[in-house]
Design a binder for these strands. Structure first.
Lengths: 203, 203
DNA sequence: CTCTTTACTGACCCATGAGTCATTAATTAT
DNA sequence: ATAATTAATGACTCATGGGTCAGTAAAGAG
């Protein structure tokens, strides 16, 4: 009867596994209510091991945010910028789809964490702003610019605040985070906003 | 040398004083990081007294949310509904002013608390929804209806989701809560949105 | 097969903070 | 005045959970 080993040493994979487990836990309970012991259990390891890879709970928190963010934003932006559609078709198609997806995605959960815990981690806020918000806003601005150059948008499109595109997405996110069971057709909300904006800027 | 009393008994005022102190503390540190002892100090009383009026920290939390909300919303809605302006003038005037004020007001702080802690207090969420969100949305709907009846708005105005008015306010709130120091002309954001909506619905 | 290294465990420590309660003293009743 | 009532205190308890570390065993070297 060959006794199987009590554990395997997997130096390479542990950090990501722990961060994933922590993300799950934070998503469910929030930062403060999450116990390191619980994270460890989810990752299938002992509590002590967590501290080998992350010196404090705060370190772990930061790793989680950066992980989730980095893994997604790059892919998304690249994907979004590589289309050959007309400006209007692009907005009503891929961009709208993207906006509809975000409120139900892990990004929404990261945002909740930032809203609740962000003030105690200013460097995290900066990181998130630089790597997500600023890049997203810049992408929208570039897109509007391109539309004007192509003659698809009126020059006034350049003066539109990119946040006008994101506002209903934001409201949808918060709505779903807070009022999970209250009805709201968030898809229609975003469609309507896109419609408002397009009729304003279309050439 | 008449020794002054060590304290005064003020059964009537304590609950509100404690709730106010707790609101301050929650606003600064968030729910989890706030110590009952700190609340007591702010209120100028002993920790034990807090427990005479609020059985648990959670009770106190609920009282805070209800307090802040109730004290403001009634006044605001009444004020907002008692104007004799034309629909457009009303939107561009009092309503826009109101929207500009909210992101910097205590309401924003309550919303942060609800986003962070709400899931553990479903009855609070319901309370807030019924007393703030639903009433606000209903007010906007009534207002649109009135505009149509008066011939100031096109009938399609009835189909507008009221949330379209609130979306940029929401984004502004979150922006200010999270990215305190990053620039964003939130006032212009709301003006632009109102403008978009008005050109769509004006008769 | 033995030795060294180190990933990993789990029992432990201890600061913290929610909640309690015996005691004190301000107020009210008589 | 004196007694009865109860608002208010503050020292206490006790569970909790972040963080530590001595010891264990898996992997790799020679």
């Amino acid at each position: 009867m060959a006794s199987q080993p009590k554990y395997q040493r997997r130096k390479e994979d542990r950090p990501r596994e722990i961060a994933d487990a922590a993300f799950e836990a934070f998503a469910e309970k929030g930062y403060a209510a999450t116990r390191i012991d619980d994270v460890a259990k989810r990752a299938g390891i002992s509590k002590g091991l967590t501290y080998l890879y992350y010196k404090t709970k705060e370190d772990l928190f930061k790793a989680v945010v950066k992980n989730v963010v980095v893994r997604r934003v790059d892919a998304l932006l690249a994907d979004v910028e590589s289309t050959e559609l007309s400006s209007e078709a692009f907005i009503r198609g891929p961009m709208l789809d993207f906006m509809k997806r975000v409120p139900g995605s892990p990004i929404a959960i990261v945002i909740r964490l930032l809203i609740s815990e962000g003030r105690r981690h200013p460097d995290l806020i900066d990181y998130y702003y630089d790597n997500v918000v600023a890049r997203g806003l810049a992408a929208i601005s570039r897109f509007l610019e391109r539309g004007v150059e192509r003659g698809e948008f009126r020059p006034e499109a350049r003066d539109l605040q990119p946040q006008l595109f994101l506002a209903p997405m934001m409201l949808s996110m918060i709505w779903r985070l807070v009022f999970t069971d209250k009805p709201l057709d968030t898809d229609r909300l975003m469609e309507n906003q896109i419609d408002l904006l397009l009729t304003r800027i279309k050439a």
